[in-house]
């Protein structure tokens, strides 16, 4: 692991069991997929690879993924009831065991989200202790990191130039009590996909909407983090 680790990556996250990689990490990948899709899906298919495919039922990986797609936090007790809640919300779901290739991390899932207007696939891996990586969006290789519990993250799609990202960052730093802890970015279809990890307080919806209005910004989504830690 190259990125500098927090003490609270070890002493944490606080989560709903049973598995940090198969439950908390899975929930986080679901959250990312939903944020990248930036719309409400009506149908979602999960392709489970490796250990995810072998043991997903017992670790509630399926409930956690689905919960994440419904924007549940990793410490949200509703993960237990994710199937029932999805049915109430008319969200169709399916789990399919699939080999995603030799190079895929053992805990990898490809999530395909759909609604009547759009379709997107997001591939992510749970790399241990609740930490995750998003490695593919549609057919584009990306590399974005996420932690199950530590940061509140923003997922944004921006025009592909450094100025745009700098400007974006500048606006975030103007917000009171919020600072940027880390930025991860990847090229994506002549655009930039960025994950901005924030520290401080929770960002307000009105602030997210303001950020989205900036020039060169396609969309911004805020991801939940643990409330209790």
């Amino acid at each position: 692991m190259s990125e500098d680790l927090s003490i609270f990556d070890i002493a944490g996250p606080v989560m709903v069991g049973p598995s940090s990689s198969h439950t908390a990490g899975a929930c986080k990948i679901g959250q990312f997929a939903r944020a990248l899709f930036h719309a409400t899906p009506t149908e979602v298919v999960f392709y489970l690879h490796g250990s995810f495919g072998e043991v997903y039922k017992g670790h509630a990986t399926d409930r956690a993924l689905l919960g994440g797609v419904m924007k549940f936090q990793t410490s949200d007790p509703r993960i237990r009831d994710a199937f029932e809640i999805a049915k109430e919300k008319n969200l169709k779901y399916e789990f399919i065991v699939k080999d995603l290739g030799e190079n895929a991390h053992p805990n990898t899932v490809k999530i395909v989200l759909k609604n009547e207007n759009s379709k997107m696939s997001v591939t992510g891996s749970s790399i241990g202790g609740g930490m995750i990586e998003i490695t593919k969006v549609d057919n584009f290789d990306v590399l974005l990191h996420g932690r199950a519990g530590k940061y509140l993250s923003l997922v944004a799609q921006l025009d592909h130039n450094d100025e745009c990202l700098l400007n974006f960052q500048k606006h975030i730093n103007k917000l009171e009590d919020i600072s940027v802890a880390a930025i991860d970015k990847s090229d994506f279809k002549k655009k930039t996909l960025a994950v901005i990890s924030l520290e401080g307080r929770r960002i307000k919806l009105s602030e997210v909407i303001e950020l989205e209005k900036l020039e060169g910004v396609d969309f911004v989504r805020s991801l939940s983090k643990l409330e209790t830690q």
């Binding site: 070890i10 944490g12 709903v16 069991g17 049973p18 940090s20 202790g129 209790t228």
Partner: peptide, 16 residues
């Protein structure tokens, strides 16, 4: 046991 019953725990360092 709390973890196995999908209750809240601290993954320290992991849930298992």
């Amino acid at each position: 046991e709390q973890n196995a019953c999908m209750r809240r725990i601290v993954a320290f360092p992991t849930a298992g």
